[in-house]
Each structure stands twice: as structure tokens, then as C-alpha cells.
Simulated assay, not measured.
Amino acid sequence: MFRYFCSDDCIENNSVSVTGGDARHLKTILRAQEGDIISVVTDSNEYKARIEAINKDDIVCSLIEEIQRNNESKINITLCQGIPKQTKMETIIQQNVELGVKSFIPLITERTVVKLNDKDREQKKLDRWQKIAKESAKQSKRNIIPQVEEITSVKELVERLKQEDAEIIVPYELEDMKILKDVLKEPKNNYYIIIGPEGGFDIKEIEMFKEIGAHIVTLGKRILRTETAGVVAATVVMYACDEMV
């Protein structure tokens, strides 16, 4: 069933108008017809809605039933991802949205190869990544669209994390003693998972994370790609917190 995300104030007189790319997708790709049923997800509720009119610029739907369902995890995971090359970030966001990650922080590190030298290019990347998050949220029946935050440096992230009440997990390929399972013996409500780019973290960055109490951990004997490490770490955290079967 098609899922349309909107804010609570979009609901008026028990109806909602689907606009923009969502309306085009319904009309041209799904070939929606009057009478078809879709799902409408607002900030606080989910509804079953019936298409009443298909217009040039929008699709008008009436709300016919409130759906009592919450697919969101009880824990909050923010994935801080060193920006990788090519389109790997899109795959990372897509898969982690499916898992239940709540937000993403694209990270510029010492070894980040990708250069975003102007604001226009940076904003285009952010818009693209947010679109991927939205599409994945629809596919995986999320109740929210995870937020892709502004691109951040390691120094800026460290300053932010000093103010956070959260477990900070940093998988590191040169760590061979502390395992992630040990960190998760007493599950918490809030986690930051920090993943380096293709070249990993510089030792100075690891020391910065240690200074704010981050857990530097190994994910096993084999070296994982940057696009794999976040998925593995998030999955282990979800499982330890009883969020996966």
C-alpha cells in the first residue's frame, strides 16, 4: 500500500491532498484510480485513506480509518557516517532506514576522499540523501521519515556529543579487544554509531572519541567495508535491545 507522509496540519475536514512527487508517482507509476486505498502517515497518526479525486496538481483523499500500529523502535540510533565515494551513501541510508535507524549525520573526516567544496553541491547531496530516506521509509512501513542532518566535521560532532546522554559506539579496524556485545550488556535508549570512510579513522580522531567516553570496538576478525559496518553495528544494537526477532 502506498504511504504518504505529511504533517498533522495537512489534515483538514478529514481529508488530505497528496501533492508534488508523491502525486506524480501515484498517477504515472502506480496508475491510481478513484476509490483506491492508500496509507497516510502524519506526525502523530497513521490512517487508511480513499482516493476521492485525481486532479492535475493533486490527489484528494478522505480519511476512512485510523490505524493503530507503531513500527518504530523504542531505541534511538543515530548513524554518523564518514562520507564514502560514489553512491555508497545512498545504499547506507536505504538499508539503515529499513533497520530502524532514526537519523543520519554525514561526516567529514581526515580521510574522507569526497570533496564538497560549495554549498550548492552540498545541498544537492543532502536533498538526494533525504529523498532516499523518504523512499526507504515508505517501503519499510516506517512511521517517521528519518532525518539526514547537515554535513558535520569530526570536531563538531565531538562537541555535540559532549552534551548528549547516549552510548557512543565507534567500530575501529585496529581494535581487537573490546567487542560490541560487551557494550550492550545493559541496553540504553540512545545510541550514536560512528563509522569511518573507506580509509577508516585517523588515530587522532579515535583519541578524540575516547576522550568523550566513546566505546572503541571491534566488529570481528574480518575487515568490513564502510557501507557494511554501519548496517552490522545497527543490527547488533537492535538485536541486543530486543528490537529484532
Rank of each mutant, 00 (worst) to 15 (best):
F209L: 03
S136H: 04
N14S: 14
P197M: 07
A233R: 09
E159S: 13
D9Y: 00
K56E: 14
K115L: 08
E52T: 10
G199F: 06
S140V: 01
K155T: 11
G82P: 08
L184C: 12
E65K: 15
I59F: 08
Y239P: 01
P84N: 06
N14Y: 11
Q95G: 02
S73N: 10
E34R: 10
E90R: 07
H215F: 13
R225S: 04
E65W: 09
L161E: 10
V154S: 03
E98I: 00
Q86K: 14
E205H: 08
L30M: 15
N13F: 09
K178W: 06
A233H: 05
Q139N: 10
I29Y: 11
S62A: 12
N189G: 12
S62D: 10
D43H: 12
G200V: 05
D57T: 11
L79T: 00
D182L: 02
R222L: 11
I51Q: 03
E34D: 10
D120R: 15
V41I: 15
A214I: 07
Y4W: 05
D22Q: 12
D118Q: 11
Q33P: 01
A133Y: 03
Q86C: 06
K210A: 01
K141T: 09
E150H: 12
K48S: 14
D9Q: 15
F201Y: 11
E34Q: 11
N190E: 13
K27Y: 04
T91E: 12
E90D: 15
N143D: 15
D36P: 00
K162F: 02
S136I: 03
D22G: 07
D58F: 14
E243G: 14
I59W: 13
P84S: 09
V97D: 03
I179G: 02
D182C: 00
G82D: 05
R111C: 01
C80S: 14
E66S: 09
E186F: 11
R222W: 00
S44Q: 13
E159C: 03
T218M: 06
C10S: 14
Y172F: 15
A166D: 04
I206V: 15
L107V: 07
